[in-house]
Structures are given as structure tokens and as C-alpha cells.
Amino acid sequence: MALGGGGAARPGRRGRRGRKGPLTEINVTPLVDVMLVLLIIFMISAPLLTVGVPLELPQTDASAVETDNEPLTVSVDQQGAIFIGEGETSFDDLAARLLTEAGGSEQATQRPVFVRADGRAPYQAVARVMARLSASGFTKLNLITDTAPTTTPGSAPAAGG
């Protein structure tokens, strides 16, 4: 009776026929976990990727500037040294380097330029940089500052000595 198809002779075979085929669904849980971790890392590190020249910006009551184009950033540090992005440049090479940084075309001068100057930088250095940029054809110049802490109307700032 070995040829007769008894169920006890081959129990594993019947189980294989009962399945419809190999499992083809992809488990996306690990992918979602990795993507969430990457999202958190980028959310934390993105604010740290701003311009790397450390400056102490002056404080004003002005609001934030809204722009559609990617701005070019020129920084002036406490000693009056000029930086485009993170690279230092001389005053004579400022316009040429900024034009090449902007793309070199005539439309490049229409990109906004953010001038970040340390609050302790000499006024003459900041004024010269802005005048050179204006004379080079850049028309959208923005002087970047920190927003001052809000004070109540009637209260005067504390005098320090």
C-alpha cells in the first residue's frame, strides 16, 4: 500500500501545496525607521549649516527678509576682513568673486546679496563693501541683523557702566 496515496507517508508535501507561492510582500517597517532617523538628523543639522563665519550681528527691530532666489552671502568680521560664503577675499577681488559665485551672467546681479557684518566691525569697512557691490551692479542688497529682544513701550534699556 505504499503506492496508494496515504496521507501519513508524506506529511510535508501536502503543506507545500496549500500555499499559493512565495511571500512577495516587502516589509517596509525598517525602511520607515531609517527614513525617520534621517529626517530627524537633517532637521537638527540644517540650522547649523548656515554661513560658517562667526559674527556678532547687531540687533534691530526689523522683520525677516523674504526671498525667492538663493541669496549670496558676504560677511565682514570684527577686523574688517571680507568673506564670500566661508572663503576670505580681498576688497579688490570682491566684485569679481561674487559675480563668479553668482553664475557670471547679467542676471546674476539680480540675485539678492545678504551682507552680514559683525556689530563691532568698522563702519567704513561695511560701507565700502556695500558701495562696491552696488557699483558692480548688484541691486538687491540686504544688511542682515539679529532681531532685538522686545521691550515694553515706556521702558528704557538699562544703562551699563
Rank of each mutant, 00 (worst) to 15 (best):
P153R: 04
A159N: 03
L98Y: 01
G104P: 00
G161F: 03
Q110E: 13
L39H: 02
R16K: 10
P54F: 03
T109K: 15
P11L: 09
S105G: 15
T145C: 01
L72C: 01
L48H: 01
F42I: 06
E88F: 07
R111I: 04
L72I: 01
L36R: 10
A96T: 08
G12H: 03
D68S: 13
A131S: 12
A148Q: 14
E106C: 02
R14P: 00
D92G: 02
G6L: 15
T29Q: 11
G6K: 15
I144Y: 02
M35F: 10
P58A: 08
L39M: 11
G80V: 06
T147P: 11
D118Y: 05
P58Q: 08
L38I: 07
G18F: 10
G103M: 08
S134L: 05
F91L: 15
T139D: 09
Q79I: 02
T73R: 03
D92M: 08
Q79N: 09
I82M: 04
L23Q: 13
P122Q: 13
V28P: 00
I44P: 01
R116S: 03
A46I: 04
V76W: 06
V129N: 11
P71M: 04
E101W: 05
V32D: 08
A46F: 04
D77Q: 00
A159F: 02
I82V: 14
T145N: 02
E88Q: 15
L36S: 08
F138G: 02
L39S: 05
F83N: 10
P157V: 00
M43S: 12
P58D: 05
I26L: 13
V28W: 13
L48C: 02
